[in-house]
């Protein structure tokens, strides 16, 4: 069994508005940071996650490659998914054992278009997209289903948002958002504006390394003890929206039990409740100390950042066993769970 660890993580100071940088310009500093942190300028494998539609043109990943310094040519691939899945692809490559280091990055801006509306076009093109249900409306359907089944109340959603925002204010990379307003109206009931992840531009990069190479590159590598991802069926009408079967499966296979900290890619308050239940996270688990996606949600990077944040707590010695989670698709359709541990030997 090849031991693979997160040995470096960097993210941008995320912004709620366009900061006047191209995606490539936004990405370059985080790649430079992980290169500096590891002392590596070349990696055995490189993989990224991005979305053409966020930029309104094809081939977002082509110009992003300029930030890597891909000369001489590099072994490289790309997923049209959150970069957490790029990390998964890199993990598989390292597990295969031909190379021992990998660079993973993701980037995206939600300042350039209305992402909730954009994601209508991610839905079934025959039965769903023509009706135009935006991302928030569908999420609210899931929230309603969860509240009805679990007995959780809208106040529980507010509590998630309040805790996330408070934590985010302590995170220099997150947006610093006010406490939920007492009189906030619904955006789409039962969700209020604070239950919805904010518009964010940002990027992140991670370096993975295997075996002794990881120990050389990092004082306290965050070893990946389990990683798994699963999909649910697409249509909200053919699955139990009140829970996440795919997250449960991924958590079970990745070994979610017994983590001290969990960074969950919950883009809506109720998603945290669904994910806690699916992953079996008790009250004693510290959830989203970074503020989570409710404090900064750069598309295509936010899932990778959850893994990075979980790893960072192991790098710093703050946690021994941590979980990073990423989600993708409407209503938590796909879920990835990565369990990390320090001090393996």
């Amino acid at each position: 069994m090849t031991d693979i660890a997160v040995v470096a993580f960097a993210q941008t100071t995320h912004t709620a508005e366009n900061a006047g940088l191209s995606e490539t310009e936004m990405l370059l500093p985080v790649i430079q940071q992980v290169k500096a942190a590891t002392g590596l300028n070349r990696f055995g494998f490189t993989c990224s996650g991005s979305c053409d539609y966020l930029e309104g043109a094809p081939f977002a990943f082509v110009s992003a490659l300029d930030a890597v310094g891909a000369w001489p040519p590099i072994a490289e691939s790309h997923v049209e998914m959150d970069a957490a899945w790029a990390l998964y692809e890199a993990w598989v490559e390292l597990k295969h054992g031909v190379v021992d280091t990998a660079l993973v990055y993701g980037f995206g801006k939600s300042s350039q278009t209305d992402v909730a509306e954009l994601l209508v076009q991610q839905l079934d093109p025959y039965y769903l997209a023509p009706l135009g249900p935006d991302q928030v409306s569908l999420a609210a359907l899931q929230a309603r289903a969860h509240l009805d089944r679990s007995g959780a109340k809208e106040d529980d959603l507010r509590a998630v948002a309040a805790r996330s925002r408070a934590a985010g204010r302590d995170n220099p990379y997150a947006l610093h958002l006010d406490d939920p307003a007492a009189d906030a109206g619904y955006e789409v009931a039962p969700l209020r504006p604070h239950d919805v992840a904010p518009r964010t531009d940002g990027a992140a990069a991670i370096v993975l390394a295997s075996g002794d190479r990881a120990r050389e590159l990092c004082e306290r590598p965050a070893w990946i003890t389990g990683i798994d991802h699963r999909a649910d069926a697409h249509s909200p009408g053919v699955r139990d929206l009140s829970r996440s079967e795919s997250a449960r499966l991924a958590g079970e296979r990745a070994g979610a039990a017994g983590v001290e900290v969990a960074e969950l890619h919950a883009q809506f308050s109720h998603e945290e409740l669904i994910l806690r239940e699916a992953l079996g996270l008790g009250e004693d688990v510290l959830v989203n100390p970074s503020g989570g996606a409710l404090s900064a949600n750069p598309p295509m990077a936010a899932g990778l950042i959850r893994i990075g944040e979980a790893a960072a707590r192991i790098h710093s010695g703050a946690a021994r066993r941590a979980l990073g989670h990423a989600s993708f698709g409407p209503c938590l359709q796909q879920n990835l769970v990565c369990v990390l541990e320090g001090d393996r030997r």
Binding site: N18, G20, L21, S22, G56, T113, D114
Partner: peptide, 19 residues
């Protein structure tokens, strides 16, 4: 077959160098 008009609007910035 049916025709599915889609129209997506963006607010783009060229970035620092291209600007």
């Amino acid at each position: 077959m049916y025709v599915a008009p889609t129209r997506l609007e963006y607010r783009l910035h060229p970035g620092r160098a291209l600007d």
